[in-house]
Design a protein around this nucleic acid. Structure first.
Lengths: 111, 111
DNA sequence: AAAAGCGGTAACCTAAAAGTGACTAATGGA
DNA sequence: TCCATTAGTCACTTTTAGGTTACCGCTTTT
């Protein structure tokens, strides 16, 4: 049997690396609706800690999906938004949300 | 500011919990094309160990996305397949793969 | 007679991720 | 005068995930 897929050519592995973190998709989903400040994101993903949120945002930024704009004020103000590249994910986010709504019976049955 | 989302009502969080593991989406993708035996899956996800593969398969099974059929033979034969519920994910898998193909320039640029 | 084949499990260990609490900056308000 | 505010960072500990090796059962092949 010859090998068909590996880490590099599997068409979903590279993608999952981008938003596979437990919080990345929720964060992207939140930002797909509005530009948000750090604290606003944190409130909307309640069980995430500052440290982890910072970390996830940094990775999303490094991957070019979100932008970070820091205002020179005190107290500090930082706004996060989807980049143009990040916005290309929106249809996917919508599809995922739609799938979840259709599947909610199965999802709750399983829990 | 009132809270709008939490872990339970965010429409993408529950979904990411289903296939958010590093290997789950690739496994589902493989099974979307064929029913596969344990060893066949392992060959197609080369850097995964038996232990982790077993673990991921058990979780996917517990979540109702895949089925496990064990034949009473020796050496053992076990076949994994998408359940009907799991099959409802196929369009999503296709969309994700399509997005990745369109975004490959950005993805490689970032790396 | 010995080894390979398959689909695991068990025990053990390391590495990565995540949680926690304290700390910072400059300003506005009580 | 002193506290609250925001978006983090730092140091430290705990939890989790993952890797590694060895082992199993029974039949067929060498």
């Amino acid at each position: 049997m010859e090998k068909e897929l590996d880490d590099t050519d599997c068409p979903v592995t590279a993608t999952i690396a981008l938003f596979g973190g437990r919080w990345k998709l929720p964060i992207l989903y939140i930002l797909s609706k509005n530009t948000r400040r750090f604290g606003e994101i944190q409130v909307r993903v309640p069980s995430i800690s500052k440290k982890v949120l910072t970390n996830q945002l940094r990775e999303l930024e490094a991957d070019g999906l979100i932008s970070r704009k820091q205002y020179k004020e005190l107290p500090p103000r930082v706004e996060y938004a989807l980049t143009d590249f990040g916005k290309t994910l929106c249809p996917l986010l919508i599809d995922i949300a739609a799938w979840q709504r259709k599947s909610i019976d199965n999802l709750t049955k399983v829990k």
